[in-house]
Structure formats: C-alpha cells, structure tokens
Simulated scan of single mutants.
Amino acid sequence: MSIPHGLLALLRHGPMYGYQLRAEFEHATGSTWPLNIGQVYSTLTRLERDGLIEPQATDDEGRQRYALTAAGVSTLGEWFAKPVTHADRPRDELAIKLALASTTPGLDVQAIVQTQRVATMRRLQDLTRLKQEPGDVGGLAWSLVLDHLRFSAEAELRWLDHCEGALLKAASAERTRPPVLEDAAAPEPTEERAR
C-alpha cells in the first residue's frame, strides 16, 4: 500500500490534519492496515517537501491542516490511472516459506501446509462473518476491502490445495524412483555381447 498516495486520495476530499487523515484512512480500510500517527506526519512532511500538499490555516483547536496542490492532484491522478504490478507488491512470505520448506531436509511440509490451511480457513470464516453483519459498518470502501480479503483467502486455500497435491506427487515419484548404485562397477561385456 502506498501511504503517500492514500493520504493524497483522502486530501482530495478537502483539507485535513494528521489525526483526521489517520482516522479516515482506517475507516475506509476497516482498520485492515492501521497507520502509526508518526508515519502519517512523516509522510505529510515528505509530501509537503515534494510540493504535493501545502499547509492551510490551522483550525479552531490549533491543528495544522493540509490541502492538495495542483501537483498533488496530478500525481494522484497518475497513481489511479496506473495499474498495480507484481513488482509493486511486497514479497509473499507464505510462498517463500513453502518454497524453502520444500527444499529443507527433515521438515514435514505437509504439516506446514495443513497448519496454514487451518489458519486461512479461520480467517475466511471471520471475514465471512464480518460480511454478513447487518448495517453499513464501513460503507462501500470497507465492503470492497473486505471482499478483496475474502477472495484472497479463498485463492490462498486453492493454492494450498495445489501445493499439497504437488508435494504428494513429488513424494510418490521419489518412492518409485529406482535406487542409484553409485559404487557398483558397470558389468564387463561378455564375448558374445562384444561380437
């Protein structure tokens, strides 16, 4: 998630101060990606330095509000227009974990897959319960985030099924492979074979 772009998107609604931006961000995402307030203010400092936002008059309580500049509006528009690529996403720890586990001797990779499957299934059940709760808890933004999380959990379960199948197939191939005789010398050709 690009926090700078997220803050720019929120400022498109109008000037806001740091704590307000944090609250709006967490409301829109259902607190799925909580922001540290220090992270918000350091990001605001960089956005101001880069000319994407500018300070506004403080509110009645003395809080510094920020607004988008023309450059900020342009940068935000470019971000929304550009697709997210796999290079933009962080590494997938689960994929790396299972790849390494499958090559590490002495591990029960099936157990690792099963442990993950149980955790992912619980997560999917929790997300499904949230989806079924009555009322408009977070509006459309939260609903879209929740759907993404649910669909990602479903895809992860399908991928874990695939991993389990690949592991079983590899184990079966390993059991049926003939043993390699490393120290046995090749048989000498007999006279009849040599003719």
Rank of each mutant, 00 (worst) to 15 (best):
G30P: 03
S152W: 01
S31D: 12
L127R: 07
S143I: 02
K131A: 15
D183W: 13
V109F: 02
A171C: 04
D59K: 08
A71C: 01
W159E: 10
Q56F: 02
V180E: 12
A184Y: 07
E61N: 09
N36P: 05
S31A: 15
T176C: 03
Q20K: 12
E48K: 15
V109D: 00
Q114T: 14
A95G: 08
I3T: 14
R193H: 12
W79D: 09
T43L: 05
E188Y: 11
A9F: 04
R123N: 11
R195W: 06
R91C: 03
S172V: 07
I112M: 12
V180M: 12
I3R: 08
A99L: 13
E26F: 08
P90W: 03
C163D: 08
L98F: 06
T32W: 08
S152F: 02
N36G: 08
P189F: 05
L181N: 13
L124Y: 11
R195D: 00
G18E: 03
L124N: 06
K97S: 12
E154S: 11
E182K: 14
D59E: 05
V40P: 02
N36A: 12
R12V: 00
A119D: 10
E48G: 10
Y17G: 02
S74P: 00
A99W: 09
L144S: 03
L10Q: 06
R177W: 08
Q39R: 14
D88F: 10
A67P: 01
H162F: 09
W33M: 09
K97M: 14
G139T: 08
A71W: 00
A70H: 06
T85L: 09
M121K: 15
A166Q: 15
T45L: 10
A81V: 04
E191A: 11
P4C: 06
A155G: 11
M121V: 13
P187F: 05
C163S: 12
R65K: 14
